[in-house]
Computed example of a mutant assay.
Amino acid sequence: MDHPDDAPAAADTASAEHVPVLLDRVLALLAPALADRPAVAVDATLGLGGHAEALLAAHPQLTLVGLDRDQAALARSRDRLAPYAGRIHLVHAVYDRMPEVLDELGIGGVDGVLFDLGVSSMQLDVAARGFAYAQDAPLDMRMDQSSGITAEDVVNEYPVPQLARILREYGEERFALRIAQAIERERRRAPLRSTAQLAELVREAIPAATRRRGGHPAKRTFQALRIEVNGELDAVRGAVPAALDALTVGGRIVSLAYHSLEDRIVKHAFAALATDTTPPGLPVTLPGSGPQLKLLNRGAEPASAAEIDANARAASVKLRAAERIRAAV
């Protein structure tokens, strides 16, 4: 997927549309685990299939499992990846269902996993999906439009304290209570229905001095609502440990995250398995206590200036990668 949380206006998306973020870096990091053998990789966030297509082209013996909750994206990817139809399994599923999907496919372990978290370029660029504050649309924001609550449900039905908590925790919005109270006043008159209506309400609720810096005033509110509607953080919390469990020794995992909340979950999941659990004071590592993962970069790796120039949606990306070096006991 190609996306950061600060969704660009429609006029800004054409040049970046469908450009996979950090494609060369992702290919280089996964290549040692996939090259020159019958490997299996999972693209846990298939989106429009840009990363998947490049992986399949680079590794002729690769079998790829692609997951996505967005049926429109799956249909587009199925067309894009048609030349590789004999080597792909595309599944309508949220990525936290990875263990179940692999079990259904009879796959016991995988050699590579890619997470490209957040909202995809197609979801941002199709105004009717309601993700972008710069384009008027119904307040939907569902990645899977076949089920679940909408952003309209959240803003019109959640109590003010719950709404403020979501804006504060998921959007890191310091004016969360002011915005929630403004929403409450507005919805007493009439339900909020459109992204433009909500974006303007948020803009007016934030102090004028703050509005003049830091991007669009509604950016954090839209991020928070999207995360709530799609249960994104809970899905990441379940999916990353499951993906690590599925990795064979020598297998590699790459995560692309676009805000600190997702990146923090990935960081902690990687760190937990990259740590020697031998009790302090012992002179040697106990059997079964050594690290299971080797971290492949130091901290979160940003995009280069050249990458950002070529693809504005890479501006906020944080890449982490790891290799399994020991099987779980």
Rank of each mutant, 00 (worst) to 15 (best):
M1L: 10
H3Y: 15
D5W: 11
P8V: 02
A9R: 11
S15M: 12
V21G: 04
L29P: 09
P32T: 07
R37A: 12
L46W: 08
G49M: 14
H51K: 10
A52Y: 02
A54M: 00
V65D: 01
L74G: 05
R76H: 10
R80V: 13
R80F: 12
Y84A: 07
G86E: 12
H89N: 01
V91D: 00
H92L: 13
G106C: 07
D111E: 07
G112R: 07
G118V: 12
V119R: 13
S121W: 04
Q123W: 10
A127S: 14
A127T: 15
A132L: 13
A132M: 13
A137Q: 05
A137R: 12
S146R: 08
T150S: 11
A151T: 03
A151K: 05
V160I: 08
I166N: 01
I166T: 04
L167H: 08
G171M: 00
L177Q: 06
I183H: 06
R189C: 13
T195D: 11
A205L: 12
T210E: 15
G215K: 05
F222S: 00
R226G: 00
L233H: 06
D234F: 05
A239P: 03
A243L: 00
D245F: 06
L247N: 01
V249C: 12
H259R: 15
H259V: 05
D263H: 02
R264C: 15
I265P: 14
I265W: 13
A274N: 02
T275N: 03
T277L: 09
T278Q: 02
P280W: 08
P287Q: 02
S289V: 04
P291R: 15
K294H: 11
E301Y: 14
S304Q: 02
A305K: 09
E307W: 00
E307T: 03
A310F: 12
S316Q: 10
I325A: 07
R326L: 09
V329N: 13
